[in-house]
Amino acid sequence: MADALARLAPYRAVLASRMRSQRSYRANFALDLVGAVLVGLMEFTEIWVLFHAVEGIGGFTFTQMLLVFGIADLAFSLADLVVGHCDALPTYVRAGTLDVFFLRPQPVLLQLVTSDISLRRLARATVGLAALAAGLVLNDIAWDVRSVSLLAIALGCGFVMFASLFVTAAGLQFFLVNGAEMTNAFVYGGRYAATQPASVWPRVVAVVFGFLFPMAFAAYLPVTALLEMPGAPWLPSWLGWCAPLAAAWSVTLALLCWRWGVRHYQGAGG
């Protein structure tokens, strides 16, 4: 135990210093908090407008959608808070920070992940949290071990999947130094996809966000399982319990991409 704590000490020291330094720019910090909430609200408005215009979409009512949006958005915001900066890998490369990571006795990826934390993104999470809370109240959910564990699985695995997306993006950006927008397609596209009912996806999207980057498992499937809904023909609702598998796949993919990227950076071929 003490040994494990000692091993975590370097990461804790860096993170603590990052948090302290952010609090010292108060004016900008407040501004960023408000901005983050606004952006989150606008993304929610899209769903609200659509469900205001029609009764239900993809077999979901607005109150049911609140759960999907809430879980997905909360998990994304928290992942963004913790590892969102990995998306800016080219900045680390240009500033030489990445080379410095190589000179320290910790794994490079862990150093990158713990090199920064954006507290301002905490505000962004309140939007998802509010939607989720509303969804939990408005839907008729039987509160038992089953529903609580599904919810916990969904949030936990959603967080891991989104965090993996950021790391995947970082790994690929070793190759696409000017193409961060390419990784945005699956990072922010993935976030957008996860807040949708997967039953409406065109086939290409279903392949990409159903399996390659398994966003359907982040919120949609667990919610169909939670509410005991039928689910899409190719995505039965019991798959909601398989979110940990999807998360494990996401992590594997992320680690492979990272490894591949680092090997490219070191020039080991591949």
Binding site: A6, A9, P10, R12, A13, V14, S17, S21, S24, A95, G96, T97, D99, V100, L103, R104, P105, Q106
Partner: peptide, 28 residues
């Protein structure tokens, strides 16, 4: 130990001493 003249291993927004403390922790 490596010093790259052009790239810093310190944290630009932290006091010098605090950078030392973090580095000491990093090196255990």
């Amino acid at each position: 130990g490596v010093v790259f003249g052009q790239r810093s291993q310190l944290w630009w927004d932290l006091p010098v001493g605090e950078s030392f403390e973090i580095l000491a922790t990093i090196h255990g």
